[in-house]
């Protein structure tokens, strides 16, 4: 806790020198449509705000360890529409989420049934912009069963679907995910197929789905490869995200990719589409995104937390000097 009466403007300035790529993206705004802030620190939030990230989507996912009871699912969903949303607002970042049963935990059928029962309590909430992330991991029968059930739920609620595609046997898993979605009568325009790579992108785009790319070191896409993808496929229905989570990942993947695209001579409008606008177009089909909130999240929060204190501006949290060994 800080005491706002004692703070001067100094505490709110970024303290470290900006890396060179920040110059390239100065003044740009970004939307990261897939990031697991539950697993991240306040340092990340501050860095994200500094880099121009304005709004994010946090999909419900696997927390790194299987849950054993329905209450931990309920609490997790609650945190996505409550605590994490508030935490994000403290940094002036508008937080949305998608709610769903992830593929890994769909394999615990008893628990999966219970999760399906409580999903309707959450998917209609304000700021829930889709059902996600759902789909295949191991491509088991149980995963398919709950994937199908959740597609039906999304259809009924008129919500977009955020599909997680598997790490192993990715190409077939991606095809199968799309086949099943079409089989249930969903419009490809309502579906964001995530974690694409060079091998999957063509078919996803050809079939009319949104193609999301996760810039995630070692296991998913690198941003140099992403530059090549945009050069080859353009910017239509393509979006970039970080999927930053509890693993070695980078919450600044979207702005860094924008900087690299800029450096590589990609058109500013294309950069804008794949790092901001397309994600909004896709998820705003939920009726839950009002871009005016990107600005008001800053003011509203300031009023609520600090009662109009003149020192704090733009929903900012006070900074600590990372270079100093003095902590006050």
């Amino acid at each position: 806790m800080c005491c706002s009466h004692e703070l001067t403007g100094k505490e709110f300035q970024p303290v470290s020198a900006s890396p060179a790529y920040m110059e390239r993206i100065k003044g740009m705004r970004f939307f990261d449509p897939h990031i697991h802030m539950t697993s991240r620190t306040t340092d990340d939030y501050q860095a994200m705000a500094d880099a121009g990230i304005t709004a994010i989507i946090e999909p419900a996912f696997w927390l790194g360890q299987p849950r054993t009871g329905i209450d931990t699912f309920r609490d997790y969903f609650n945190s996505l529409i409550g605590w994490e949303r508030f935490r994000s607002s403290q940094f002036g970042i508008k937080h949305y989420c998608t709610i769903g049963l992830n593929s890994k935990e769909a394999n615990n059928e008893k628990l999966a049934e219970a999760v399906m029962e409580i999903l309707p309590l959450f998917i209609y909430k304000e700021g829930v912009v889709g059902v996600g992330e759902i789909g295949f991991d191991d491509q088991t029968a149980a995963e398919e069963k709950y994937y199908r059930a959740q597609l039906e739920l999304a259809k009924e609620a008129g919500l977009p679907v955020q599909i997680h595609t598997p790490h192993r046997d990715k190409k077939k898993g991606t095809q199968r995910s799309m086949d099943i979605a079409l089989e249930h009568g969903l419009d490809p325009k309502m579906i964001i197929v995530d974690h694409n790579n060079e091998e999957t992108v063509q078919e996803v785009l050809d079939r009319g789905f949104w193609a999301a790319f996760t810039i995630y070191p070692f296991t998913k896409m690198g941003n140099e490869r992403m530059v090549e993808i945009v050069k080859q496929y353009g910017s239509e229905r393509i979006m970039v995200n970080s999927a930053a989570d509890w693993g070695i990942s980078d919450p600044l993947a979207v702005p860094k990719t924008a900087a690299l695209m800029h450096e590589s001579g990609i058109d500013l409008n294309d950069i804008h589409l794949v790092t901001f606008r397309n994600a909004i177009s896709a998820f705003a089909q939920s009726g839950q995104i009002d871009e005016a909130d990107f600005e008001s999240v800053k003011d509203i929060d300031q009023r609520l937390k600090f009662n109009g204190s003149t020192v704090l501006r733009g929903g900012q949290q006070p900074r600590i000097d990372k270079q100093s060994n003095i902590i006050r």
Binding site: R74, F77, I81, K125
Partner: peptide
């Protein structure tokens, strides 16, 4: 209360 978002709370 148990399933409320921030504004609902």
């Amino acid at each position: 209360f148990d399933a409320a978002d921030m504004n609902e709370l």
